[in-house]
């Protein structure tokens, strides 16, 4: 018994200085510690809005709309497979359809039968001045005519005439004008997609129009 304790003590004594040296050597210089502060482990982040992890592009059987008991549901192609290699966006299908078309990653037919027919593309940008402080809207005809035909929008949804179309964001959110497609099939109206349309900054000397009430009685 005593022999064992003595032996342990000797071992401990002989190990101690080695450990001490190792600790000194292991202490990194202060600068490195400061740099490491930015990397917080993902386990310690605070999910303060209690958001659930977002599931993107689920296969049909798991998406909550298709019936998993239907045999053919499992035959349908899962979107993730189809989207492989396509450019991404943070909204909608999480696919940048226009970019995919521009880079020839997709070559959808313009005609039902003939794959060689080319679309009637018109490259004309329409600038719409916006009353409020957000940047002005630039409407590019090019990507729209690559997908659609003139008759899809003109003259029923948009009158092809300057200043003939009155529109606002409330109407668009409710599915009018641009909202006929944007917010349903084409990229949706989210806080991340504002600048896709509102893309032209106001001129440097631009000032927001003042409300009539405050102009009449500024000291109220």
């Amino acid at each position: 018994m005593k022999m064992k304790q003595f032996f342990l003590g000797v071992v401990a004594l002989s190990v101690l200085p080695v450990v001490a040296i190792q600790v000194e050597a292991a202490q990194p210089p202060l600068k490195e510690v400061k740099a490491a502060k930015g990397h917080v482990s993902t386990a310690n982040t605070f999910n303060r809005l209690l958001k659930k992890p977002m599931a993107k592009n689920l296969p049909p059987a798991e998406d909550g709309i298709h019936d998993a008991d239907n045999d053919n549901t499992h035959v349908l192609q899962p979107p993730k497979i189809a989207y492989d290699g396509l450019p991404t966006t943070p909204f909608g299908n999480y696919v940048d359809w226009v970019k995919a078309l521009d880079t020839n990653l997709l070559q959808p037919r313009y005609d039902r039968f003939d794959p060689t027919i080319e679309p009637l593309v018109m490259d004309l940008d329409i600038v719409r001045e916006v009353k409020s402080t957000v940047p002005d809207v630039v409407f590019p005809h090019k990507p729209h005519t690559q997908w659609l035909h003139c008759s899809n929008c003109h003259p029923k949804i948009f009158i092809p005439q300057r200043k003939a179309n009155v529109m606002n964001m409330s109407g668009i959110l409710l599915g009018q004008q641009c909202g006929v497609c944007h917010g349903k099939v084409a990229f949706p109206v989210t806080t991340q997609s504002c600048t896709k349309c509102h893309s032209k900054p106001k001129p440097a000397d631009w000032k927001p129009p003042q409300s009539e009430t405050s102009l009449k009685d500024p000291w109220r």
Binding site: P79, P108, R109, R112, P119, W147, H149, N152, V180
Partner: peptide, 28 residues
């Protein structure tokens, strides 16, 4: 019958909007 599910994404990979919404007369 089970309701119909139409996947826009699958069809737009193969055809442009114009084919169905202009040629075939599908309303928006």
């Amino acid at each position: 019958m089970r309701p119909v599910v139409f996947p826009h994404w699958y069809h737009r990979i193969r055809f442009r909007c114009k084919v169905c919404h202009a040629d075939l007369g599908f309303k928006f």
